[in-house]
């Protein structure tokens, strides 16, 4: 396995993705300590200043510092992305494991439920959920997790379907292992590879969904997120383009870096695909 991890660092694109992600994560954790101004501080006298020595990314239509706001935006975006992806991965693993392992009618019921979630237009469902239950960061996370868990569930299920027929699973049963032990000790560790890759890709997807919701005015009004910044600066883009450009660029970087990391992890998990390239 150690040699496999070296594969990750062989690909400079994955390394670049990881570097960007680490940088963004640092910004998100250090957060307010890095910001030169209070992100919510309005100053009528400083409205729509272009990027300069004081306001590195300029100020928006209310005179708020775009750089300081972007820092808290990255924080909210990463929080939403990571927590939503983690929650959806967890739910997906539980549903997928049970369906794949026990099979039969149980599998059918779980998979039909999964399909119901998959056939509903996803973004529409998110809009409805957030609109119904008020736009808070927590509700946005829940809505995104509800949208994305079926992907992980189907993936986990298919891994289980193939792994449960392995002879080492039979051998564990003959050793007296209970169903729980077979699921957690024998099958799940071997199924985790592709699931983690998909989970990582979900982080980017969740950040995009959050940005999309915010852009439609369904963002958490009490938190500064990158999507909220885009939404608020849109009417003024002609004379204060910087207020929209920088948060947009950061969304792009954040999603790009998680996707690159996901691809890199995929190479680690499926090394033979790298060799075929």
């Amino acid at each position: 396995m150690d040699s496999h991890w070296r594969l990750y660092f062989h690909n400079w694109v994955s390394v670049l993705g990881l570097a960007i992600l680490v940088l963004l994560a640092l910004v998100a954790t250090l957060g307010p300590a890095l910001a030169p101004f209070d992100p919510q501080d309005i100053g009528i006298a400083y409205r729509a200043l272009p990027p300069g020595m004081v306001n590195w990314m300029g100020t928006d239509e209310l005179g708020r510092d775009v750089f300081s706001r972007s820092i808290s935006g990255v924080r909210v975006s990463l929080l939403v992305g990571v927590v939503a992806a983690a929650a959806s991965t967890l739910v997906g693993i539980v549903v997928g494991s049970l369906a794949g392992y026990f099979g039969g009618v149980f599998d059918h019921i779980l998979m039909r439920i999964t399909e119901v979630f998959q056939v509903i237009p996803q973004f529409f469902l998110a809009v409805v959920l957030v609109a119904l239950f008020s736009a808070s960061v927590f509700n946005i996370i829940v809505a995104i997790a509800i949208l994305t868990w079926p992907v992980i569930a189907r993936l986990t299920r298919s891994e289980f379907l193939s792994l449960k027929t392995r002879q080492y699973v039979d051998a564990a049963r003959l050793s007296g292992a209970s169903d729980a032990r077979v699921i957690f000790r024998e099958i799940l560790p071997n199924a985790m590879g592709p699931v983690i890759v998909s989970g990582t890709l979900l982080v980017g997807r969740a950040m995009l969904t959050e940005a999309g919701l915010s852009f439609l005015g369904l963002g958490d009004p009490s938190r500064v997120s990158l999507g909220v910044m885009l939404y608020q600066s849109r009417p003024f883009i002609q004379f204060a383009w910087w207020a929209a450009l920088f948060p947009g660029l950061l969304i792009f970087l954040a999603v790009l870096s998680t996707n690159l990391v996901g691809d890199g992890l995929n190479d680690v998990i499926n090394p033979q695909m790298v060799e075929e390239r």
Binding site: R166, Q167, Y168, D170, A171, A172, R173, L174, G176, E186, N190
Partner: peptide, 17 residues
Amino acid sequence: RRQVQMVFQDPYDSMNP
């Protein structure tokens, strides 16, 4: 379960990686 054990055809596949 204890009394009846099995040796499998493929020794590679019968070991958890």
